[in-house]
Design a protein around this nucleic acid. Structure first.
Lengths: 206, 206
DNA sequence: CGGTGTTGTAATCGGATGATTACTTATTCG
DNA sequence: CGAATAAGTAATCATCCGATTACAACACCG
């Protein structure tokens, strides 16, 4: 009978630290994307990841290191997506493939917004360094691998920053009710607008 | 001789509440622009404005209301600048005048960055409302008053968001040492780059 | 004068939050 | 097995920060 108590308590599944780290990183990306670096608490990240608050700080050391890891992961994911987009569907123009790959990054919730939050915190020594380095990495890729000129690359980046802003400001919330918002979204995104609108539906429908 | 003690203590200059409010608002714009909404303390704003911390919260009620006032002021200043740019130098093309007016807003330290911080906090009910409304106001102006088409307006906004990002990420810090950064800044800003570089010099020289 | 409203501060409070410590439970391996 | 290692948490701490309160000094006005 002494074994009954052991059977009554369901064994809590453990996880390899690598998997757990990745899981927390994804959860942190979502929360940081919505609330920004300073506006996010380690407790909110922990809740989103389904672990305790002390555990997320033990995995990453400090909240700042966690945010830096989120930024680095976002940049890595982006570069992988860009390189894959370059290698596929060679019949389409480069700019179109890159734009499509960029919009597809919205599937990874909070990824582009976490980056954006990092970009506007350039005054912070650590965050600024990673942000500048990552931004320049993208620019170098656009020129050296995607074959864009410096003005074309700037144009691509400009549209990317506008997309980030429109997502961050939640302009799609006004799409159904505000004709101006609708028109602006269409003028800004063109054929890529449906991809953005579809995202909101998956969120509200879940 | 009883008046001597009164003469010894230098009378502290008072200020009309309107002036003081404006002064705090400008100081808050600078600090919020550098550190974001959640990353800024009311104490930092107070120090920048040269008043006590309880006073800045008494003027505005709460920190959030202060940030909303900063956003509203930034939007107002921007619209005034745009309208003035439209009415002056009619020999130049509209887009050039608007772009120039936008870059000139960098003179008001933190103004564009505070806006940017507001834009990426669209998930916040209050901040999001003001940010969306202000952004749409600009778009409507570009179409109705500046006479741009929806795609041209989006193009203008895109370059604005890229400028905001480059300022926020402090890309100009790398201008002298990093050839890639130099090239990207030139490709992004073109003739407006000197205006941006001049700003940093005024800051480091002060 | 003197009293009344306004500008402004010092002191302090209470809640939030990042981090630390100590402990528990599972897994791995000789 | 059983000891060692790793995954994970509960409890708690110390600090920060927005807000409140109570008070001080000055201006205006009768």
């Amino acid at each position: 009978m002494s074994s009954m108590s052991a059977e009554a308590s369901i064994p809590i599944p453990r996880m390899a630290s690598d998997e757990r780290r990745e899981l927390v990183l994804k959860a942190a990306t979502e929360v940081f994307g919505q609330r920004g670096y300073a506006g996010t608490t380690t407790d909110q990240v922990a809740a989103a990841a389904g672990v305790s608050q002390p555990y997320v700080v033990r995995i990453f050391g400090t909240k700042e290191k966690l945010f830096l890891a989120v930024l680095q992961r976002a940049l890595d994911v982006m570069m992988v997506a860009f390189r894959q987009a370059l290698s596929e569907e060679p019949e389409l123009p480069v700019s179109q493939r890159m734009g499509r790959a960029y919009v597809d990054l919205l599937q990874d919730r909070g990824l582009l917004l976490s980056l954006m939050h990092g970009f506007v915190l350039g005054a912070d020594p650590e965050i600024g360094r990673v942000a500048r380095c990552g931004f320049l990495e993208v620019y170098k890729f656009l020129k050296a691998e995607a074959g864009l000129g410096s003005v074309e690359a700037a144009e691509f980046l400009a549209h990317g920053m506008l997309l980030n802003t429109l997502v961050g400001i939640r302009m799609t919330d006004e799409y159904d009710t505000n004709p101006d918002a609708r028109e602006m979204l269409e003028g800004s995104l063109g054929a890529k607008l449906p991809l953005l609108l579809a995202l909101d539906h998956t969120r509200t429908a879940s």
